[in-house]
Nucleic acid binder design. Structure first.
Lengths: 201, 201, 201, 201
DNA sequence: CATGAATGAGGGTTCATTCAT
DNA sequence: TATGAATGAACCCTCATTCAT
């Protein structure tokens, strides 16, 4: 419909444009540091237009979280359910998490920084989804522990927290103009995770 | 340090009490989510008193960052400059980072979540101090790589980012009433860091 | 009343449906407390439809007032112009006012509560019509005073104000599920009016 | 009350000034028709000053209702508890209600027109206070009925509703520059009430 | 006839900060 | 040293109304 060719002005429908603008601004200035006025200016409309599509500023954030959670679940599904050995599945999934997190760095930033701005209900929902997501990884690790591929003297949970801590942290230090490509970081992180999982002695 | 007169009446001097209250509230509700009114109420004084000691709300945050950075530097100094082998020094320093971060969980929370609320100048200063702190760890790792104690096929920076990402993340998932003690987590994290640093066959 | 074509599809024509919805909502939430959005939702259409038939939200209110005033005038005409003695005519008219006001309680509520929302012009017009209406009653009373049926030591106006004050107040305290029927209240109120009009010894 | 002499600027403390301004504006334009901006302009301050003393716009209204209810209760107490015969006590109380309602015509206007703007809780409280107040009058009437001074074929409640309806209505038609003095109206209304209460044949 | 996206003005409220005391 | 009244700017949100379709 848009054809991304010559006609430039309205590449997206307004709700999408508003979400895009909000995502960028929330990532840069934080949720509370971003006024609705700034968002609508970035989208080139007035406040009324935003409130025509979204119930509130919180609603925007909710939608962003929903989008991220959906994407995370889809990606995990894709990598965790192949037929490869568990170590390989985990490595691929982990590398992909890094890649995807860097590809959507603004989402990643928002995800970890703005959770507490959600309503109590939405926070619960997001936490639950997040937990399921983490459990997807933990299950892989426990599977590897069960078959003797991974060490068992460290709780699987700790590996998950360690790894996702590192992923989260990407949104703080990663620069798109840096020297390390997303692929290399993903590869290294996945490698370090697998290394640290190797059975002891 | 101030010592002027007989320090007596209150359990803490007022500036200290205000900083303590602010720290707790910033950690719980975020910087923007905490009003000056709430801080002075928590400290049992009125706004005028706060503005007598601090130039602005930002000034409070700056002081909190200053306190944290000072403590981090001191702790690192303590563990990095012993005579032990580099692996042991790194392990001890890493474990201590975890312990200290958990002991001052509110500080840790604020540190990573509120950086962007600082003025540009203060942000630069904090980032510089943080970089020096990280470089202290990187130097240890590079020292280990130089003497063949650590693998060299992964940039030292990545280990640092991975580890501090995990430490940062602690402030999100760690619960004081959880099943894992701070010591065990510190030990495990340090162990995993060292394991992943082991030279590859 | 309009008759243009075959009136069929909807139980009521749209303008009528909108007025009905507006009346109910204005009575329940007040004019300012009722958004145009709520009205069109209640009528099952969209805003464009309302603005096709009505110039503005105020226009709706004007129409409601017009409808009420027309009805009041008609009812008064009906009861005041019979051939009965003046006391009986007044009693009947008064009882009917109560009955009609209760039958259209929403109208009554709106009538007294929302006058000041009308434009200055419309307010003037409504007040004038209202004055004519009251004068109809006052004329009856003065007629009774002239023929010696009613006391003359109290200005006729005061009886009118007293009585219509009571009628107005109905919209505040009357409950359709209460113990007193509209008929009994009308009968009592008319009775009390007549009693208080009885010539003093 | 203000002294309207030389010293003009600040005859009252700010909270009182704000309440006075709000009362006048609410009476003239209604609660919803009066913006906070208008109130503070009338009081010669800024919004922040208002919110320093009042929690919300509703809080202003609550205070106004509180003031009115307190005054009503005091006045009733004063007139209902004397040693005179019940008819005289009722007459005096009724005449005073009219006088007081006219003296505080803005309060009277607001009282009846803005009840539904209060929070559910406050509404309940106001209604309860109002009911107690009405019951004070009803009790007088029932006392008169019990001793044979008043007719019994009409429920006491109806007299109360009739009378207070008329009082309420005062706020709609009474003009301070009109021909009837408040005293005469009070006297007449009280007289009509007593007349209509006289035992039948 | 009717839709619904979008406007623009204004609503109530919060809050960091100042300043006379 | 500390108070608390008051400011002023910004905030999120609502809503009557318009207009291209």
């Amino acid at each position: 419909m848009t054809g991304e060719g010559a006609e430039s002005r309205k590449p997206d429908k307004l709700p999408q444009r508003l979400l895009t603008a909000a995502t960028r601004l929330f990532a840069e200035y934080g949720f509370e540091g971003t006024s609705v006025q700034k968002i609508v200016e970035a989208a080139g409309v007035t406040k009324g237009a935003l409130y025509h599509y979204f119930d509130s500023k919180d609603d925007l954030l909710r939608d962003i979280y929903g989008r991220v959670l959906r994407m995370q679940a889809e990606q995990l599904e894709k990598f965790a359910t192949t037929q490869s050995p568990v170590a390989e599945r985990l490595r691929n999934a982990a590398a992909d998490v890094v890649l995807t997190s860097i590809a959507h760095l603004d989402d990643t930033k928002i995800f970890f920084r703005s959770m507490h701005q959600l309503s109590a209900d939405n926070q619960r929902a997001v936490r639950a989804a997040r937990r399921r997501y983490h459990e997807g990884f933990r299950t892989l690790i426990e599977e590897g522990q069960a078959v003797g591929a991974f060490r068992t003297d460290v709780p699987a949970d700790l590996f998950v927290d360690l790894f996702f801590g590192a992923v989260h942290h990407l949104s703080i230090w990663y620069r798109h103009d840096g020297t390390l490509s997303a692929e290399r970081i993903g590869s290294h992180f996945a490698d370090l995770l697998l290394t640290s999982l190797r059975p002891t002695g």
